[in-house]
Design a binder for these strands. Structure first.
Lengths: 196, 196
DNA sequence: GAATTTCTGGACCAAACGTTCAAAACGGCC
DNA sequence: GGCCGTTTTGAACGTTTGGTCCAGAAATTC
């Protein structure tokens, strides 16, 4: 290696991720990415191949974050698993970030035309789903959720609610309503009884 | 007017709506819209002004549909309101349409850059939310949901679940899991008891 | 059936797009 | 210190974009 890189690749990916998150894939020109990252177009192409390659890196990076989040929520006392789920939903509900999450945006925009993005999104969702299911199972072991209930379905309900809350946030639904929705979801999960 | 239009404007809007739904706004060129609608570019611009104008028309058209749907779900016996909600969620859960709903896609892609789209989306969500709340209120009057419960929150939960189910569908989550989520949402709503 | 009006679709434009490339700039190594 | 190899740069590439225009076809009206 004769001349070392003058930029931190991870920082560049993070900058690109923010830009893609704000203006989407097709809505972001390589020139804007160049401005956002501080790198010339040539450097971007040298480092990441092409625009798709850079997006893939940014998307991977984002999904790694959601993977980590799912794992982190599983840490802690089993008796507080539902509290952690509730706090996750509430945080989403309170968020005023209109650009939302790259997993949602990227999937909506590219899943049908870019198999690599679709595959990474599928994996991210599978991890999120498994994490939510795990939270419900913890709550079941702690006696807070009916042991006979379908943990996969209830976990899925947590995830679906979280995804929906983000959409509602983008659509200007009142934050207090959104927080009430988050609480209603968790309350419903604790109230449910398995069919006998 | 010496010569009448040779095309049905509503059909053209519907064709454009389908195209936008599949490839997004920035991902659809005017040439593709011309192919999809069967109209030349000149005719499209003559009739709708520009690409934004055509999208706005298509988006309005789609939102009118969701408005109608929300109203239609309010029709029927109050005692079956939750059944209608359940069926709505199940239909969403079963859908294998990967391109999803234009309200979701359009909002994700354009809400932050196009105020007119954002405004229409906000109105559509408000209508959906009011409809879901109405369904819960019907169920409360029919004695199926605790009368002291927060109808706005439970209605919001129905809507959030519906939005989330669509996202899960795009992400390849198993349809049987999705249907179970739909049922879990409604079951949770009937099980919830207001804090005393 | 001629006049008039409107619609039509391909040709056309400038701008912006994603991408490439040759040369300059620079750190590492002998 | 000087060569080597990589990185960086910014200009230039061909393509495609959104948008305009116009000559002529088509259809109603009188």
């Amino acid at each position: 290696m004769a001349r070392p890189r003058t930029f931190d690749e991870h920082e560049v990916v993070a900058a690109a991720r923010r830009q893609f998150n704000e203006t989407g894939f097709h809505g972001t020109s390589v020139g804007e990415l160049s401005r956002a990252t501080g790198l010339s177009k040539g450097s971007l192409y040298g480092a990441f191949g092409d625009k798709d390659g850079l997006f893939q890196r940014a998307f991977d990076d984002y999904c790694a974050g959601t993977d980590e989040g799912a794992a982190a929520r599983l840490e802690g006392p089993e008796g507080e698993a539902l509290d952690r789920a509730r706090e996750w939903l509430r945080t989403t509900a309170r968020s005023s970030d209109t650009s939302g999450c790259l997993l949602a945006r990227g999937t909506a925009e590219l899943a049908s035309e870019n198999p690599a993005v679709a595959a990474r999104a599928d994996a991210a969702y599978a991890t999120l789903l498994a994490g939510c299911r795990g939270l419900v199972e913890q709550a079941q072991r702690a006696g807070q959720v009916d042991a006979g209930a379908d943990a996969a379905a209830l976990g899925g309900l947590i995830l679906a609610t979280q995804r929906g809350l983000e959409a509602l946030g983008r659509a200007g639904v009142d934050p207090s309503v959104r927080v009430a929705i988050a609480d209603a979801a968790i309350d419903g999960i604790t109230a449910v009884r398995a069919p006998s």
